[in-house]
Design a protein around this nucleic acid. Structure first.
Lengths: 164, 164
DNA sequence: CGCGTTCGCTGCCGATTCTGCAGCGATCAT
DNA sequence: ATGATCGCTGCAGAATCGGCAGCGAACGCG
């Protein structure tokens, strides 16, 4: 029986497109097509397909949080009392909707959530924990870690010029 | 002495622009202007100014990491042996350039870095830690936490429709 | 209180870019 | 060998973007 090497969801060309777009999401379709040696229409079709398939989920605006009045960032470890699915999901949903929350990690291990938050100052950080985290009955313990700095990594795709 | 209410770096209109763009970074300038009741040229000017001032740093592509062959995400706590500035910076720079690294937090406290990584499977995760983290002499200890799920929060700006 | 200056907003125009359509060639299965 | 399917290509209309000069309001100064 031959190996079912069925059409991969993303082929090599898709990967190159995603790699280039990951490097510069604001790249114009024309420029992208030229870099890949494709026709613009082909390139546009590929990009649209990648979005429809959900490989490219969308874009996120990168902001200077300090300039917007939230210069203090922190990671807050949250440990729960119980792990009832409903309680966990409700807390999860509540946290992602709380102003100041940048992202939430639901993790395995002793701790349950890691919150990445941005606030105005130390007082706001304290208030955030008290009013939006420990206020939930299911939260047993929190541990707040100040973030000196955050940098983005290069992600999962090799640099475009490497194999090209 | 009157309070020096000197021209804020971002005024209320800027905040509304950023809030709308944060909600949908691919919003066209025309649509953005219409929602704010501004002329397109004014809107474009504001957005450009926000970028030039660095309030809007850019955009990031949101990818389905699983579809790209990296379905396993983890947070890796990294504790250092020494805290010599040069060592720290060199490690930091090395980590953000390592394939698979999504973001790196440099934090205060007992641990020094939190790595957010995406890998193909458990074996790749083990190899990642051994080959790219503990290989550095300055790393004393690591602790790896599997990520069940990651969600983005709403950020630091209130929902656009809240205050009108 | 009057005047000059500065700043932000507006509308318009040329240039660039994006979207949809039909044809072509290659690849694969029969 | 042949038919069919799939992806790539080029073109054309439509929408969007970027720059320029004018207008009005707010501010500071005499």
């Amino acid at each position: 029986m031959k190996k079912r090497e069925q059409r991969p969801l993303v082929d090599e060309l898709d990967r190159r497109i995603v790699a280039l777009l990951a490097e510069d999401p604001e790249l114009t379709n024309k420029a992208l097509a030229r870099r890949l040696g494709l026709a613009e229409s082909t390139c546009a079709y590929r990009v649209r397909a990648l979005r429809e398939r959900g490989v490219v989920e969308g874009t996120t605006l990168r902001l200077d949080l300090a300039a917007l009045g939230h210069p203090l960032q922190a990671l807050i470890k949250v440990r729960l009392e119980r792990h009832n699915a409903e309680h966990v999901n409700r807390l999860y949903a509540s946290l992602v909707r709380t102003p100041g929350v940048i992202q939430v990690f639901h993790v395995a291990g002793a701790d349950d959530f890691y919150l990445h938050v941005a606030v105005a100052d130390a007082e706001a950080l304290r208030d955030f924990v008290l009013q939006h985290v420990t206020v939930h009955r299911v939260v047993r313990q929190t541990e707040t870690h100040l973030i000196f700095e955050r940098r983005e990594g290069i992600g999962v795709l090799p640099a475009p010029g490497t194999t090209g």
